[in-house]
Each structure stands twice: as C-alpha cells, then as structure tokens.
Computed example of a mutant assay.
Amino acid sequence: MTMLEIMVLAIVQGLTEFLPISSSAHLILPSQILGWHDQGLAFDVAVHVGTLIAVVQYFRREVSTMAVAWTGSVLKKQHNQDSKLAWWIILGTIPAGLFGLLGKEFIETYLRSGYVIATTTIVFGLLLWFADRMAKQQVTEYQLGWKTVLIIGFAQAVALIPGTSRSGITMTAGLFLGMTRQAAARFSFLLSIPLIFLAGSYLTLKLAVSGEAVDWFSMTVGAVLAYFSALICITFFLKVIERMGMLPFVIYRLCLGVALFVVLS
C-alpha cells in the first residue's frame, strides 16, 4: 500500500469503529472507486491495536475500577455496580464471539458484497433513527439486567453482517431498551473493548502463521493514526450526542448507502 492509502484507511477505520456509520461501508469505497487493494493482515492488526488503545485510554478510569471490582467479585464475592457492569460486558461479548466463530466463513462467502453493505447501511440507519425517536432515555448502563444485556449482545452479533455498524446496532438496541443516549454510547464503547481485543488477537495469530511479510513502518503509522482518529471520535461523539441526537448520522448513512448503490450499478 502507498502512504496515502495507509493514512486514509487508518483514519477511516479509527473514526468508523465508534461512530454509528459502518466501517465496512467506508472501506469498500476506496476499493470500488480508486481500485485500492486489500490492506492485508498486518495492517488490520495495526489498526485494531490503535483503536483498542484509544478506547481503553479514554475509559481508563472505568476500566480500572471495573477490573478491581470484578476481581473482588471473583475472589472475595464482593459485588457492586462496577463488578456487575464488568460481568455484563463479558456476557454481552459472548454472542458476537460465538457467532463470529460459527458464522465467519458464511458471512465472508455470501454477505460481503457491495449491495449487501449498501442495503444494510440504509436499513440499519433507518432503524437507528426510529430507536432514537422512540427512546425513553431513562436507563443508565448500571441499571441493565442480564436479559437486556443479552439483547444488546445479540445485536452486536448482528453487526458481523457488513454494513450494519457494531456501534450503531448496539446503540440502537440500547435506545430501544430505554437507555439514555450517553449510556447507550458508553456501554457500546465499553462493549467494544473485549471484542476488539479478541478480533485483534485472532488476526495476530493468523498473521503469525501466514508467513506474510510485515512492514513495521506502515503498521506503526496505521496504528498511530487509528489511535488518534478513534480517540478524537469518541471524545467528539460523547460530547455532542445529547445536542445532535442520532439524526445527522442517520442522514449520513442514507446518503452513503445511496452513493454505494450508484457506484456499484
């Protein structure tokens, strides 16, 4: 890949990992319009590392508090709202992990077409708009129960379908369940930590056994740019979501989906 491709794809990955606008829909455009080649395993590992560091750093206090509380709940049977939230994040990760292991081959074979991505970008964008309009906005992430967590977890599993948007579908589910926008976004971001870690670990293992040559300079640039773009994205989104709501992102998704249909036709 050229340096321009590395910079663009890393920034796009960092931004779209957390905004409810679908990373796969954005990454298909450069290949379709500009003829860019697949970025390769090494680059995928790099951007996963960058986005993981960004979200952990932003929520470092919450992650540290939950880790201590979770350890206490395991070793000393001491439970509080932070240990409960940590358990909910683990529980909410299980459906996506299982679906990823069982359905990855089917998804990559049958659901990675541009038309599927364009359709899901539009459909799940409209669903996000409807959830945002109907949301009661009363529940925080600390008030979730195991049933509601599993619903959000299964929604995250649906995001394995390209074009859905992991953050978009988990926020949609959270809003339907009565969560506030801030709480739905925070829980979505916290829920991304184990999933990004698992995906990055899988890709790292795959890279190790593939024998693919590693361009360390390109990986470093990709990781750094993905880190900064993801950190800026999280900060921006959580600060403006109460004022903006989800409508701007819904409109953007609809325009993107239509653009994909135009490009692919």
Rank of each mutant, 00 (worst) to 15 (best):
S64Y: 13
L127C: 11
L203V: 02
G174Y: 00
R133M: 13
G103F: 13
G103M: 13
G174H: 01
R133I: 06
L195A: 14
V45Q: 00
K77V: 03
K76F: 15
E212Y: 10
P162E: 02
A159L: 09
I241Y: 01
E242A: 15
F106T: 09
L127G: 04
T120I: 07
H48G: 05
L195T: 10
L260R: 02
L19M: 14
S83Q: 02
Q39E: 12
S22H: 04
A185N: 06
I89D: 04
Q143V: 09
A184H: 04
P20Y: 06
V214W: 02
L75T: 11
M7E: 07
V209Y: 08
L254A: 14
F59N: 13
T2N: 13
L19H: 10
L127K: 10
K104G: 11
L190S: 05
P194A: 08
T170A: 09
I232R: 07
K77H: 15
S73C: 11
V258F: 15
G178K: 02
Y142R: 11
F261H: 12
G72R: 13
G92Y: 00
L195Q: 04
L225M: 12
T2V: 08
S229R: 02
V68S: 15
A155S: 15
V47G: 03
S22K: 06
R61Q: 14
I28L: 15
G14T: 14
M246N: 02
T235G: 15
T140K: 05
A230C: 08
R60N: 12
S265N: 14
E17I: 10
S83G: 01
F106G: 12
F18V: 09
R181A: 04
H26N: 08
L247D: 06
T109S: 13
K84N: 10
V262Q: 13
V47Q: 03
M171W: 07
W70P: 03
D38R: 08
K136M: 11
S188L: 10
F18W: 09
R60P: 01
L231W: 14
Q13T: 09
W36E: 14
Q138W: 03
M219Y: 02
G125S: 07
W36G: 05
I107F: 01
W70K: 01
L41Y: 00
A185M: 05
Q137K: 11
L144S: 02
F43I: 15
V224A: 11
G257K: 06
F187Y: 11
M171K: 05
R133P: 03
P30C: 08
V209D: 11
V63K: 00
T148Q: 15
V240Y: 13
F176D: 00
I28P: 03
I21D: 00
V47W: 00
K84P: 01
V139E: 05
E212Q: 12
L111V: 08
I94A: 11
H37F: 05
F228D: 01
T204V: 09
V49G: 07
